[in-house]
Design a protein around this nucleic acid. Structure first.
Lengths: 185, 185
DNA sequence: TAGAAGAAACCAACCGTATGGTATGTTACA
DNA sequence: TGTAACATACCATACGGTTGGTTTCTTCTA
């Protein structure tokens, strides 16, 4: 009898570990590092265990993506709830989220998200739909140039971070970008 | 005797086609679409042909990367040569390059570049080194917040484009970003 | 409340396929 | 006539997924 059989069954914890392991592997080694074997074994389980919980590798990826989108929406909502301005509510929350350095785990999650999207057309579509839904929800004008610049800058800043480039004067940048979402219309 | 043997030998043209095919495949199908077989056959040659010109798949990727960096540097240089301002010369050229919509091939090339980098740590390093060299060459302050914001925004805009999101009012955005590289210091 | 019975949670071994790369051959060019 | 430019056949490996088992949990009944 294999030793692993003796462990307590904890399906929910295993699913969590599988998701986290996949994200971590993606951040550390790019999306090509996400193999069924690697993820499974990083989560302390075999391929069989992996494929019991998720019918395919793609299913896990989709699950991660959905979860991250939900987390993102919830973080945005939390930040937006204290914002009484008429314009740029979503974008400001987006900026805050990117610069709010209190949660490094969040950064990893975002990077993993981006990596996943970049090789998967369906996920890219989900992302753009999510974004446009959010913009609609917070009544942002998708054509507002200033807001678009700010959001693009945030995306670029993620990339820079993933590339290992230190961003100088984060706080100041945070402040400037935020201010511009408030000024003109 | 196979038909292909009868073609005129044109090694230089084949190498060119291999590079272009790899870039196109990356843009269309993500980096996982770059397989030796796919690239070779898209270039009208077999795996053997591919591996005669490049000792490995990675060698082709490296060659593409080097070439793109050189092209980029040359485009930047061309644009910078007409710029007499003291600040932000590189960044303005970078912005121009991204928004100069006359060359859609350039866009594809950049996207391919980004895709390649995202799964290859060594290439990411090469990119950051290239960037910091360029900043030094044009005497840009790497900590200049306004310039950093502009460059980040450009990177984010590429991504958006790759994601298929139309960027509203490109010209206006181009103008605004450029203006900000000129104003304060 | 015991325990039987079924379902859920795993593991280990196997399979087909795709991939990067090698070895060896064939044709064209210099 | 040698060398560069290809093609063809082959190889080892890694991958996603399947199959069939073994163990633990849950639930239903007497």
């Amino acid at each position: 009898m294999s030793e692993a059989y003796k462990r307590a069954k904890a399906p929910q914890a295993v699913r969590r570990r599988l998701m986290d392991a996949a994200k971590r592997l993606a951040v550390e080694g790019g999306l090509s590092a996400i193999t069924v074997h690697a993820v499974a074994s990083a989560a302390g389980v075999t391929k069989g265990g992996f494929l019991h919980h998720y019918p395919s590798k793609q299913a896990l990826i989709d699950a991660i993506f959905e979860e991250v989108l939900e987390q993102l929406a919830s973080e945005i909502e939390h930040r937006a709830s204290n914002d009484r301005a008429a314009r740029g509510v979503f974008t400001r929350a987006y900026i805050d989220l990117a610069f709010g350095g209190d949660a490094p785990a969040t950064d990893e999650t975002w990077i993993a998200l981006s990596l996943l999207m970049l090789d998967d057309h369906a996920l890219r579509l989900k992302w753009t739909n999510w974004l446009s839904d959010q913009l609609a929800l917070y009544r942002e004008d998708p054509a507002d140039i200033e807001l678009n610049i700010a959001r693009f800058a945030i995306d670029g800043a993620w990339l820079a971070q993933y590339f290992g480039v230190p961003i100088p004067e984060r706080n100041k940048m945070h402040e400037i970008l935020t201010k511009r979402t408030l000024s003109a219309g």
